[in-house]
């Protein structure tokens, strides 16, 4: 008995170590199986359909090689949608992060009412994009509140057909995305700023560093992980943008604001061109993966953390 009890702890330890990977695997099986069935298998099947002329309904289809991809790049409306997607992604990422960072730095101070202001600026991020888009569709109407306010302040010359003029419609859509994303990035930056030790900033102030110098040499490098995640999330949101465009303009006027996502929806569900729309979805997937990877590596090189 005594021998058994002495030997037990060592055996138990050995068993724990050797059985660890299997146990982990066992726990991971349901999630991995679901992930495989829900994501990997449909994605792989979808990839096959990108090379067919399937209409989403028929039981038969033909393989058409790379015709769907060739047609996408030959169609000016698809190319326009790709360009719009990139413009939306980069412009909204840059401006929303700049505004979010500025708000976070401002609201990280000890000003009174900072909590109320944080809620105020974060509130748009809580709204669903569909609600926001309907709200701004009303605000941007030709006789809507925005033009009304401009008129009231004697700035009638600045009035625009915001959503009806192809030169302004994309800008109007981006304004809404920036308005919503800025609060979101602000919260990420606030969390990052609150992790920066106050002593460091105080020490540098004692050493004579000004506010700009303190931000650039201390806050910015220590904020790098927050910048990495915030830029990546807003960039991905911009690349996948759908609701704002669909609700505010429907991709119009005359295709001028279509993003890849709205064009994918239109091709699949309005035209029944599933093969073509899956090909577009693949292009979007590659775009998101490539751009995200590039910006992630670029930011890591600047001092961001994994």
């Amino acid at each position: 008995m005594a021998r058994t009890s002495e030997a037990a702890p060592a055996a138990l330890k050995r068993r724990r170590i050797t059985s660890m990977p299997r146990t982990v695997l066992l726990f991971a099986v349901p999630a991995l199986a679901l992930y495989t069935f829900v994501l990997l298998v449909p994605t792989a099947r979808g990839t096959v359909f990108a090379f067919t002329n399937w209409d989403g309904l028929s039981r038969t289809f033909d393989f058409v090689g790379f015709n769907n991809f060739a047609a996408i790049f030959a169609n000016p409306d698809s190319v326009k949608a790709i360009i719009n997607t990139l413009i939306i992604a980069f412009v909204t990422t840059f401006i929303a992060n700049a505004i979010g960072l500025a708000l976070a730095v401002a609201l990280n101070s000890r000003i009174k009412s900072r909590n109320a202001l944080r809620v105020f600026f974060f509130a748009p991020a809580v709204l669903t994009p569909v609600v926001t888009a309907y709200l701004f569709k009303y605000i941007f109407a030709p006789l809507g509140p925005l033009n009304g306010v401009l008129d009231a302040f004697g700035l009638g010359v600045l009035k625009q057909d915001w959503l009806g003029d192809p030169n302004w419609a994309l800008i109007a859509v981006m304004i809404v995305i920036i308005w919503q994303q800025s609060g979101y990035t602000m919260v990420i930056y606030l969390a990052g700023l609150q992790g920066i030790p106050a002593e460091l900033l105080e020490a540098s102030a004692v050493d004579g560093a000004g506010a700009g110098r303190r931000f650039w040499s201390i806050t910015r490098p220590l904020l790098a992980p927050a910048i990495t995640i915030s830029v990546m999330l807003t960039l991905i949101h911009g690349l996948k943008v759908f609701a704002e465009v669909y609700v505010m303009t429907g991709g119009g006027p005359g295709n001028s604001t279509n993003s890849l996502s709205t064009l994918i929806y239109k091709n699949a569900f309005q035209f029944g061109l599933f093969g073509s729309s899956i090909a577009m979805a693949l292009i979007l997937l590659v775009m998101v993966a490539l751009i995200s990877a590039i910006q992630y590596r670029a930011l890591l090189a600047q001092g961001g953390h994994k």
Binding site: D165, P166, P253, G254, F271
Partner: peptide, 21 residues
């Protein structure tokens, strides 16, 4: 014969009104 003709027409009207085509 297909919905694309109608779409070309509808979006086309917006384009003509918007001076895009």
């Amino acid at each position: 014969p297909n919905p694309v003709v109608s779409s070309a027409h509808k979006e086309g009207v917006q384009k003509v009104f918007g001076g895009q085509a």
